[in-house]
């Protein structure tokens, strides 16, 4: 538990900054909703001025945006980006920092197996992701009830949040996989941003592509909010692909980490 506790302690603080950012963004957007819903035609007219590709790329859906959950899904489109960066960066840095800061020699000459190091670090990362997501879920639920008078589906609200958690888990796993290859990288955040924005850009193309299969290429499109709003469930095939991706990345990281050489400092 010592590695787990240590990692939890040093990583929780920066995760709380992400959480505060997400809460601030969500609350700010939510306060706009009552005025939008009062003057719907002006709002829709404004949005219709944008080309459909632009609307798609930025997560604007004219059919749903005037309902509170539709509007909320639009907010989560951006929250997803922030939480993905958080997950990715956590995954990339938590393993690679030992080699970057040259502390790997210290840790790996202690009586602890590499698999235990990996599992402790993964456990700490998942715990952090869980804590931030759970707190965000609770605070969002409270603020939505405070700001909005309309009723909304608790199930859809929960499914939307759970999809944010799952996408963050996918990015955490991809980050873990990338992290085991990195040796002396100076800045993990630049790698994390590059990877996340690449997938985000693929997502913007995928949503405008005629072929639905493009969606498999980016975790950002595994959980289609329109589908969730309409059907109150996830699309099974994408959910399975997401989970398989998590498992592959984590199992791959394990085998590479256990067998890799730690270079001399």
């Amino acid at each position: 538990m010592n590695i787990f506790n240590y990692e939890l302690k040093i990583n929780l603080k920066s995760s709380l900054y992400y959480l505060l950012g997400m809460i601030a963004l969500t609350s700010l957007y939510l306060t706009f909703f009552p005025s939008f819903s009062k003057d719907t035609s002006a709002f829709i007219n404004l949005l219709e001025g944008f080309p459909p590709e632009f609307q798609n790329a930025f997560g604007i859906d004219l059919k749903n945006i005037l309902s509170i959950m539709g509007f909320y899904a639009f907010i989560l489109f951006y929250i997803l980006l922030i939480s993905s960066i958080q997950g990715m960066n956590l995954g990339v840095s938590i393993l690679s920092k030992e080699e970057r800061d040259k502390t790997a020699d210290f840790l790996m000459t202690k009586p602890v197996t590499r698999s235990k190091i990996l599992i402790s670090k993964l456990g700490a990362s998942i715990t952090i992701v869980l804590i931030t997501n759970l707190l965000f879920y609770l605070v969002s639920y409270m603020s939505i009830n405070l700001i909005i008078e309309d009723t909304f589906s608790f199930k859809v609200f929960t499914l939307l949040h759970l999809s944010v958690f799952l996408v963050e888990m996918i990015f955490l796993s991809i980050g873990f996989f990338i992290g085991v290859f990195l040796k002396k990288v100076k800045s993990t955040i630049s790698i994390s941003l590059a990877v996340v924005f690449s997938f985000f850009a693929i997502g913007a193309f995928a949503v405008n592509a005629s072929d639905d299969k493009m969606r498999y290429l980016t975790p950002f499109k595994y959980f289609d909010t329109n589908y969730i709003l309409k059907n109150g469930t996830y699309e099974l095939s994408y959910l399975v692909v997401g989970i398989v991706l998590i498992i592959l990345c984590l199992v791959g990281s394990y085998f590479i980490y256990v067998n890799k050489d730690i270079d001399s400092v």
Binding site: K102, T103, F106, T109, P111, V112, T113
Partner: peptide
């Protein structure tokens, strides 16, 4: 059995790096 061995080994390396904070 590296972890089992490490229980009774002390290693003092040439260059020292620890958690700076």
């Amino acid at each position: 059995y590296p972890a089992k061995i490490a229980e009774e080994v002390g290693y003092i390396p040439s260059e020292i790096f620890y958690y700076d904070n």
